[in-house]
Amino acid sequence: MHGLDVTLEEHPFFAGFSPDQNRIVSGCARNHKFDAGHYLFREGDPANEFFLIRHGRVALEIVSPGQAPVVIATLGKGEIVGASWLVPPYRWMFDARAVELTRAIGIDAACLRGKCDADAQLGYEMMKRFLPVLVKRLNATRLQLLDVYGKR
């Protein structure tokens, strides 16, 4: 049976991490299982944890009062759910709902922030992994905003 450090090592997000760094991060990690329809987190809640999807699919949703939620993106195996843990005030900006049975590794945000503060190299490695994800999603959102399939 694999320990969490091995599970993390196999996740694409942590590709290239040293064994020491994996061990440090796995000290903040735990396994989660979300049944279809269950929420990983809700908008406004403290962003105490972010998630690495091992398998399954998660929908990010925004709710307007009196209207059905709008799904703005879905995330699947190998992807990261949650960036609000990185920036104050550490509150979720969206709902995250499991569309199907989803298994994920949760990383305790306060724990990891503390370890990154104490180990600048670890913090830099985390930023190098998070920033491309954020830029990619920003670009994807810009493309969505263009409504390229609408009539010209």
Partner: peptide
């Protein structure tokens, strides 16, 4: 994948790339 969806859609949401 679709650019926009309501919760009844169980597929991907996001851009095709």
């Amino acid at each position: 994948t679709v650019d926009h969806a309501d919760p009844d859609w169980h597929g991907h949401v996001g851009v095709v790339p």
